[in-house]
Design a protein around this nucleic acid. Sequence first.
DNA 1: CAGCAAACTATACGCGCGTATAGCGGTCGT
DNA 2: ACGACCGCTATACGCGCGTATAGTTTGCTG
Lengths: 225, 225
Amino acid sequence: MATPPGPDPEDLTARARIRDAALRHFGEDGFEKATIRGIARTAGVSPGLVRHHFGSKQALREACDEHLMKMIRRLNDQVRADTTLSDVSYVGAARAAMAPYQLYLARSLADGSAASIFDEMTRICEEWIAGADPGRPDPPDVPAKIRAAVFTAMALGVPVLAPHISRAMGVDMFSPEGDLLLSRALVDLYSHPLMTPEDAARARAGLDRLAGARPPGRRTEENSP
Amino acid sequence: MATPPGPDPEDLTARARIRDAALRHFGEDGFEKATIRGIARTAGVSPGLVRHHFGSKQALREACDEHLMKMIRRLNDQVRADTTLSDVSYVGAARAAMAPYQLYLARSLADGSAASIFDEMTRICEEWIAGADPGRPDPPDVPAKIRAAVFTAMALGVPVLAPHISRAMGVDMFSPEGDLLLSRALVDLYSHPLMTPEDAARARAGLDRLAGARPPGRRTEENSP
DNA sequence: CAGCAAACTATACGCGCGTATAGCGGTCGT
DNA sequence: ACGACCGCTATACGCGCGTATAGTTTGCTG
């Protein structure tokens, strides 16, 4: 295997440039709005070459997904490798490395594709949660996988809605200042439970009551003025 | 004002049917992929009438945004009105009432439009947070508005990524069982801080160190292997 | 040097979209 | 009773897209 057509050792080839351009265009304009012609122009090639290498627009998207997931896996393994770093710096470094792809990831997740990426992140998160579960006082009444999925969705909500957060903060979320501000906000939110244990108990009781009484049918008040 | 062209008392007119159909199509297919012809067919009218009433596809989208925001405001006022309900049932009822619009809201937020809706929800959330702030032991070091924006993004991450959560749970998030499961997971996550106070203190110290030392420049290891 | 395969370009086609405009029927004010 | 108006439809235009295919360059092998 001297120069195999393998996917990894390609970083300056036209194929890789097309893929990177596609990641940018898909991320900035969305899959539908992005055009093969525009991607080709950014990559400095002819539109026909895009089809020659990837076959179709959809296949190009799937190649982007695959590439991104490979990068996420590598990032996670890398973080797992040296746990000597403090939590914060690793989170910051990971966010910095992901920055160019977050727009694409956001779009891709939002329109329902990139399922495997979400599942992979959920799996990673589940390991993380399962590792922390033994340390908590009360046993969880929801499987770790489901909690992992919900939390993954919440965590991904931040990059997905990055423009809105940046607008609220007044600085770009990906700038150093914005990143710092966001990190502080996240630490604050993560370290303060939004519900007291009593609230939670009451809520759980309410849920049990709803579940026992009747399945929560929707109210008919949606047509009242 | 017998039959004014006002926006409110219209619920069975063709205009309202077009708007509802647009909400569905935009939500299910995305703004770009959705077509005026398809919306018109769903609404049972001719494509020309869509333009006659709304002028353009973009204007139709803005009308959808406006309508949705009005509904959100009404829902919030309604919830604020009777605080006798337990937290959970109001959350469930609100989610049920929002169900048909969550897909649209998700798409709309994800592609950067619907800024005013996000800001409105942030404002509501900020009031909620500001009301709860006096009760916490340590003073927050991040403005309430920013915490509200970040939390709003996280909360909206759930409906935005609903398909993925549903896939992980095994049941549709909007079904009664899925809603119950999701609510339990949310209660569990909300009632258990993800970071201990020590973790948070250490993280804040790390952030202060990073902020004081140098702005966090990105590593050069993204091209290493 | 010949030849061939792979990378790449040029050009064209067809389709479906948003948009524009002309025309038709019922309803209401006068 | 009648005409102006509004809701609504039918039809058409032009554009830009994804896709297809034929042609051109490049680089490697025998």
